[in-house]
Structure formats: structure tokens, C-alpha cells
Design a protein around this nucleic acid. Structure first.
Lengths: 259, 259
DNA sequence: GCGTGTATGTTTGTCGACAATCCGACATAA
DNA sequence: TTATGTCGGATTGTCGACAAACATACACGC
């Protein structure tokens, strides 16, 4: 990729950023939750997981506290940590937060009028339309969440992006927690098309309205209100059955040679 | 206070919630940062602070990781943890996130049309109008942030409330990080009056606009753009000088008799 | 049979200690 | 004088171990 041309007067070097062991473990845990490797509600066996990651319990526990702060893990004193469950009655809370973040991200995106940023959203949208042609619910679900995340990321706000990265995992947790199993609509595109159209036309209010409607409808559908209204859904083996082996890749936290 | 009448069919007992040691330490650290007991940019001496809290380094480090996730602490490998600094160029990012959270909270609040919730916001507003009569900048600043937090809390969304509790501390950090020192406007009320009026009238868009304008103006002021435009400010000794003794109350994490 | 009480195994929560790393001061050389 | 190299002190990052608490299963009594 081409080097970014640094603006004149800017420092020649950016501050080096070396991820710590806790960083690596935290992302590993997030990925495990997102992928279902750590099933919803399952306890976090510290000795077992720390051995899988090739680290001690201390950095694992420190990393886990980050997910506790995010709400992805719940801690009960004396009982340890469990993967959070997003029950049906808490779905409105989750999606209302998504509406807050995503609608404002859309407003920012339109205000900035950055063609490059919008292009990335368009790319995610194209990827989604491609995914819905298939039948794999997981692929569709991933593309759906990727699109929504790309939208927020395009706004360029670090905090909203951080919020959204958590909300994405929480949404996935909600799908896993659902009694219906992991289901997705096959006609996800129409709502998204409305969002994209509003984004491209630069109509902030229309975009916000489309996003709010889309997410409100998603809430209603997941709470089962629209379960019998003939919306075509595709189920897939979502969360692995309890007792499955959690595969967590080993973490490399050795300093190692830099050359 | 009167007992809440539980709805019929609801479980008679709520799940008991016992705060863990890490919880206590985390809130203690947050308070220390908010109050300035831990100055901006100061390193977090683990042995020193853990002894002040009466705990070992392990639970302290775990609690600190929660603040890292919040962005209140920054971690540099091999260099430990430092209290985050919110430099001027990052102020727009912070306040844009506040706009996202607070405007949507206002929309929710108006949509719910809950008189009791609105009353709490009004109480916080009254407390603010009372505080601006005095000359203590810290008191005014506290009341200001309390009002904004009360607004979000009144919306009843757990996630937005959690976001806001962090944003409040980050805003305080920004004030501490400011080269101007800790300053507040003395005429904070007019903007807030506009917000309150819109909230009471039930005009969601007007409330959102008032909040956005208020926060945008606050951003401009803190970045120094309005420094010379004659806005009356009051300074106060904000952050304690470096080298001050961080007073952190000891934490009680002993199980203790339950009777 | 149902409920209570007890015992056991496992897991968590906390601690102290070790090694690696980093910062600062000092000395040295160009 | 400026820059480089070296040394020492201090702090972090990680580990293993201990004690307390919890969950499960089983036995006992009503």
C-alpha cells in the first residue's frame, strides 16, 4: 500500500505502539466470544484457558477484567467469570445503544463528506449483498455486523468506534442467547439499501431514521414478536454444544529478537 | 423510603449483588482521577497505591485494566500505567461522543415521557443553578457534569449510562489537562436552560439541537478559540501540584461477619 | 419422599517473589 | 560542548503457591 504523505510540520515518527500481553489475550478472548468458541454463559476456567494461551493466570485475569468492563464477561465473587448472556428482556437496551451510536456516526459521516470514508462503507455493503446470496447464516451475520461496524468506523470517532466494537460482540451474544438459535433474515438488504441510499444522498436525518427503524425492527424480530409473521429465516448451528473444547490459540508474549 | 411494589409474577428476590474487591478498587481509582487526587499524566505506582489501599498488587492491576478499557488509564509496556491525558487535539473526539450519547438520551427521555425521570433532571438542574451562584469553580464543574450525567441516567439505558460515567471523568481529565488550568464559565446556565426547556416541552429535536450546540460551544471554548472573546471565566486550583500525596482510602475486602 | 446438614473436590482470590525491562545519572570520547 | 556508552536503582510483568469459598454429591433425620 502507498505510504501516507505526512502533513508538513508533523513529526516524522509516530509513537511506537507495541501491544502488551494483556492486549493480545483480551482480543483473543473477544474473538473467542464472537466466534462462539466460548459459549454463552459458560464459566471461564482460568487454569484451563491460561494453559491454552500459554500464559499464567495473572495476565489472563487482567485481560478478563477488560471484558468485564465491556460487559462481555460477568463476574460473581467467589464464582469467577462467565460469558455474559444477553437475555431477551435486555435486547431493547442493547439496540437502543446501537441506535445512539450508529445514528450519530451516520450524521458525522455525512457532515464530514469524506468520499474515502464513504467508500469503505460501500465496500462493506457490497460485501454484505454478496454474502446474502449464500445460505450460510454465519457468513451473513458476520457481513451484517461488519457493515454496521464499518459505518461507525467511517465516522472516525475513536470512542464511538470503541463502543461499537463492543456492541457488535454483544449483538452476537444476543443471537447466541436467543432461544430460536442463531438466525438471520435473508432479506437483510432492503433495510441496508435504504441506509446506504440516505448516506450517499447526504441526508443525515433520513439516514438516522433508516438506521433507527432498521435496528428497532431487528429488536422486535429478535424478541420473537415477528417470529410468526412469515419472515424468511435461515438457521444454522450457532453456538457449539456445551462441553466443546475451546480452541484458543497460544499467545506469543516473549520479547524475542527484533530483527 | 417506600418499598417498590413488585409486579405480579415477578420473582420475590432480586439477585444479590456483592461488590468484589476489584469493583471497590476500580471505583476508588475513578474517584481519585475525577477528584484530581491522581494528577493527569502521573504514573500509577503499583506498590505505593496498593499499600495505600491495603491490598496486594494483583487486584490493583486487575482493577486498573478496567480503567484502561475505559481510556482513563494508558498502558505502555515496560513503563506501566499512567493517568490519561486529554490533549486539546483530542477534545473534538471526546465531545462528539458526548453529543452522541447525550442527544440520544434526551430523545429517549422525551419518548418515554416519564415524569419521575424528568424530575431528577430538573433537580440536577436546580442544583446547578444554585452552584453557579457561588464562586468555587470546582463546585460549579461538579454540578455541571452531574447535570449532564443525570440527563443520561434518566433515559434509563444501562449502556449509555455506563458510557456517560466514563465520559464525565474524561471531561474532567480534559479540564485538568488544559493549559488554562481548571476553568468554568460562570454563565453556564443559559445553555442549560435551553436544554431544560426543550426537555420539558417534549421537543426532542430542539433538545438534541440545544445539547449539540452547548457541547460544540464547550469544545470551541476549551480549545481556546473563544479564550479572548470576553467570556467570563473563573479559575481555581484544579489539579494538585505534582508530588502531592495521593490519598486513597483503604479498601475493605475482608469477608467479615454477615450478621 | 422431602428437606436439611455434612463432607469432598475443585476453583477462585490473594499474596509474595523472581526475572526482565526501563529510566536516569554518570562517565567517556569526539 | 554534544553525543554516545555504561552502570545502578527502581519498577514492571509474570509466575507459582496458599488459603478461602463455592458447587456437587451423599448421608441423615423428619
Amino acid at each position: 500500500m502507498p505510504h501516507n504523505s505526512a502533513p508538513a510540520g508533523a513529526p516524522a515518527f509516530l509513537r511506537v505502539h507495541r501491544p502488551s500481553t494483556v492486549d493480545l489475550i483480551a482480543t483473543e478472548l473477544r474473538n473467542a466470544i464472537y466466534s462462539g468458541g466460548l459459549p454463552v454463559g459458560s464459566p471461564l476456567r482460568e487454569v484451563e484457558i491460561s494453559r491454552q494461551l500459554g500464559v499464567s493466570r495473572s495476565p489472563l485475569r487482567e485481560a478478563a477484567q477488560r471484558l468485564v468492563q465491556e460487559g462481555l464477561l460477568t463476574a460473581i465473587p467467589g464464582q469467577g467469570l462467565r460469558v455474559a448472556t444477553v437475555s431477551e428482556d435486555r435486547l431493547p437496551d442493547l439496540f437502543e445503544a446501537r441506535i445512539a451510536v450508529e445514528t450519530h456516526a451516520a450524521r458525522i459521516l455525512i457532515r464530514h463528506n469524506d468520499a474515502g470514508a464513504l467508500a469503505k462503507v460501500t465496500a462493506a455493503f457490497d460485501h454484505l449483498t454478496e454474502a446474502v446470496k449464500g445460505t450460510d447464516a454465519r457468513t451473513i451475520g458476520d457481513a451484517d455486523l461488519d457493515f454496521h461496524f464499518a459505518l461507525v468506523e467511517a465516522a472516525g470517532n475513536t470512542r464511538l468506534t470503541r463502543y461499537m466494537s463492543t456492541l457488535v460482540v454483544e449483538t452476537r451474544l444476543a443471537s447466541f442467547s436467543s432461544k430460536q438459535g442463531y438466525v438471520v433474515r435473508r432479506d437483510v438488504t432492503p433495510s441496508h439499501q435504504a441506509i446506504m441510499a440516505a448516506l450517499k444522498s447526504g441526508n443525515a436525518e433520513a439516514a438516522a431514521a433508516a438506521i433507527a427503524e432498521h435496528l428497532t425492527e431487528a429488536t422486535a424480530r429478535m424478541t420473537g414478536e415477528l417470529a410468526e409473521r412469515g419472515i424468511e429465516v435461515e438457521t444454522v448451528a450457532g453456538a457449539p454444544e456445551p462441553g466443546a473444547v475451546y480452541e484458543l490459540g497460544p499467545i506469543d508474549h516473549t520479547p524475542g529478537p527484533t530483527d
